[in-house]
Amino acid sequence: MALDELYQEILLDHYKHPRNKGRVENADLSVELKNPFCGDEILLTVRFEQDKISDMAFEGQGCVISQASASLMTEKIKGLGIDDAKQVIERFQRMLKREEDEHSDAVCSAACRHHASDEELDELNALQGVCEYPSRVKCAMLAWRSLMQALEQRKQTP
């Protein structure tokens, strides 16, 4: 795969000009995660209004994939209801999840193999190519894991 398919323009744009970078004021929750594999870090702050994610922001440092993924995630998730957010998370995970083919060999997700975009994911489709680099999937998932933790914490202490 050509490197440009991994490092798409849109990812570079989000890396250079991250959206929602910083901290949400009066955040209800904050989650800090570190990827021990490469040292990438993220601090996600979230504010809820009833069942809606009314505001979220991230701070962190790391590679293009981890930072662009965090930026794209905040853009997509901000303003969504919790249930809708969970759906996006699921779709995003499915896009990056490697699967087994008929010979039990691990292969990329169907989306990645067939370059099939998931319309619901909009610009997040730009991260599809990460699936071909299993060690980098962790980079792409870092922000998302922190979001999942935030939603889990919210469930326990609404």
Partner: peptide
């Protein structure tokens, strides 16, 4: 440039280096 991105580039050039802490 994050060394992970650099290592991915070098990998495309078939040069295997480690990146991380």
């Amino acid at each position: 440039i994050h060394p992970h991105d650099l290592a991915t580039f070098l990998d495309q050039e078939r040069v295997a280096v480690r990146s991380g802490h």
